[in-house]
Write a protein that binds this DNA or RNA. Structure first.
Length: 572
DNA sequence: GCCGTTTTCGGCCCGACTGTTTTCAGTCG
């Protein structure tokens, strides 16, 4: 039984109860329990077997019983009953912006709308406006949003949104009436995907700032415009929110709009227990006096907490850790000593070995592992064993020209369908570093896929498991793997796991970093660069590793060259 | 439904914007 599967089930129960108009706190309890399971860093089966379900915060007697029932019978009576009452298409309705649980229910009860198709028909014919609480205008909004829901999940790659956010931010900072401006939201938290761009600005004249903001060339359409807030759609369709507050409120607003929502809920609960009230403008004592805070650190300080880095504000224990003064020092770009996993023109890269090495050295790194594709990766110009030997000679020549910088001869070796690596052992043994990656047959059944990866890990020449899930964000799910088993095997074998910084990958997923580190697994933060200009993808990897609470000590390529080499599985 | 340095019962985060319900509910973040 997978934690993610049970999490989905609880999520569904919560949404169905919400649709029925159940007590909102009960609804939230299910959502909280679902999130707790999604963040569980160990096998759910072990937790169940050891009777530790109720030790998970957010899981009490009732939900624990339901999880046990699900484990035993594969179903939960409450869920079956709810599914019997509510047609399956109805939950999709709630995903349409403008239609929440209440209106969706009203539409279902008055017009029998039970799917996106029904909704479209009703909206187009004008009948949707007959639903109590809905009017002409809302019906039009819903019709417009419906298309987007169908076309896209509403998540954008952080890498697509970030440049736009930076341009908007630069424009805001040039505005003479803006005192301060920052990016908030999922971008500030280093999420891999975001549903919008969130910006916060401080100004004594919010109206004027908003006027200029909505007139910026990046803004394609204005969705909403109030006294302090505007929602717009940018070129390309990405929504953006700007909130303008009085300068004194800026630290509170920045904190609030950075989120996550779960983190903020946790923080406000803590404030309340301390007799304080926190909102996006201020921190109030019971007697109505204000607690002054000059910056975000002071806001956390006033609640008895260390400042919490934005990346980890996901309600995964960071508030408690900050209260106990035991937040980890998260890894930083400056901690990295070497760059692993770059491609060159020898396979599908765009630059020479020398050019990549020069670029890495110019960025301050001490070593670089060239890892071109192996022979089976024909689509990417994979190297036959003979070419690999020639490449080693070329690397030797390049190294002769360097002092205090070393190029290593590595390879990104395909993990074949049966779990063998793409070269015989004698070829693998001749390399300095082997990253083994899944590139094909990503649709294998779970058991078979897991066995495949476990077999690859058994190969003594595998040093690093590359982009372990093989996912491509917003395009395809990764391989279906029992990740706990993969982590156990990697820990046992001394294999490191990659945190791939390609903005489409960001894989190993940050939600697994803690579970990897607990097992003593080292993480390799790699750019997977195909040219000098994408060496900076390590920054994405750093962001996502910070999100996973990764410290310098856990990072393989934060080691100086000699220690790095000793830490490799092949040299142990 | 969960939870407990004021509580095993009575709380549970809070405010902006929109449209329509003419005084506020629903949605969103």
């Amino acid at each position: 039984m997978r934690a993610a599967e049970v999490s989905d089930v609880l999520e569904e129960i919560g949404r169905l109860l919400e649709f029925k108009g159940e007590n909102p706190f009960k609804v939230r309890a299910y959502a909280n329990a679902a999130r707790a399971l999604a963040n569980l860093g160990e096998p759910l089966d072990a937790v169940v077997a050891e009777g530790r379900l109720r030790e998970i915060p957010g899981i009490g007697a009732a939900i624990a019983d339901k999880i046990l029932a699900y484990a035993e019978t594969g179903s939960i009576p409450l869920l079956e009953r709810l599914r019997g009452e509510i047609p399956p298409g109805v939950l999709e309705l709630v995903a349409v912006p403008g239609l929440g649980p209440k209106r969706a229910r009203a539409a279902f009860e008055t017009l029998g709308i039970a799917s996106l198709d029904d909704l479209e028909t009703a909206a187009a014919s004008g009948r949707l406006a007959e639903v109590p609480g809905l009017g002409e205008k809302t019906a039009r909004t819903i019709l417009a949003n419906l298309e987007r829901v169908r076309a896209y999940t509403g998540r954008w790659l952080a890498a697509e949104a970030r440049p736009l956010a930076e341009r908007l931010l630069a424009a805001l900072r040039e505005d003479p009436e803006v005192v301060r401006a920052e990016t908030a939201g999922g971008l500030r938290r280093a999420m891999e995907t975001v549903h919008d761009v969130d910006l916060v600005a401080a100004s004594a004249n919010p109206g004027a700032v908003l006027d200029r903001f909505i007139a910026l060339p990046e803004v394609a359409a204005v969705t909403a415009r109030g006294d302090t807030k505007a929602t717009v759609r940018l070129a390309g369709g990405i929504p953006a929110d700007l909130r303008v507050v009085e300068p004194g409120a800026f630290p509170f607003a920045l904190q609030y709009f950075t989120g996550s929502q779960a983190h903020n809920t946790r923080l406000r609960g803590l404030a309340r227990r301390r007799g304080l009230k926190l909102n996006e403008y201020e921190l109030l004592r019971k007697d109505g006096t204000l607690v002054a805070c000059a910056d975000e650190a002071a806001v956390y300080g006033a609640l008895g907490l260390e400042w919490i880095p934005p990346e980890i504000r996901e309600d995964r224990g960071e508030v408690q850790a900050a209260g106990e003064g035991r937040l980890p020092r998260l890894v930083e770009r400056g901690d990295l000593r070497g760059i692993l996993h770059v491609h060159t023109e020898w396979s599908d890269g765009r630059a020479t070995i020398e050019a990549m090495a020069e670029a890495a050295r110019a960025l301050g790194f001490e070593y670089l592992a060239v890892c071109d594709h192996s022979r089976s990766a024909a689509y990417a110009g994979g190297l036959e064993a003979g070419r690999l030997r020639e490449q080693r000679e070329e690397i030797d020549r390049v190294n002769a020209g360097f002092e205090e910088f070393v190029v290593l001869a590595g390879c990104e070796v395909d993990i074949l369908a049966d779990g063998r690596l793409d070269y015989p052992d004698d070829v693998l043994a001749g390399l300095d570093l082997v990253i083994g990656s899944l590139h094909s047959r990503l649709g294998l059944p779970r058991e078979e896929q897991t066995e495949r990866v476990l077999r690859a890990i058994q190969n003594p020449w595998l040093d690093v498991l590359g982009h372990p899930a093989g996912r491509v964000l917003n395009r395809r799910e990764g391989a279906d793997l029992v990740m706990e088993w993969v982590l156990d095997a990697a820990a046992e074998a001394g294999v490191a796991l990659e945190v791939n910084g390609d903005p489409h990958r960001l894989d190993l997923d940050w939600r697994w970093h803690g579970a990897a580190m607990e097992r003593g697994i080292r993480l390799a933060i790699d750019p997977d660069a195909h040219g000098p200009e994408t060496l900076d993808y390590v920054d994405n990897g750093i962001g996502i590793a910070r999100k996973g609470w990764v410290t310098r000590e856990a990072v393989l390529n934060a080691l100086p060259l000699d220690e790095f080499q000793k830490a490799l599985r092949r040299n142990r």
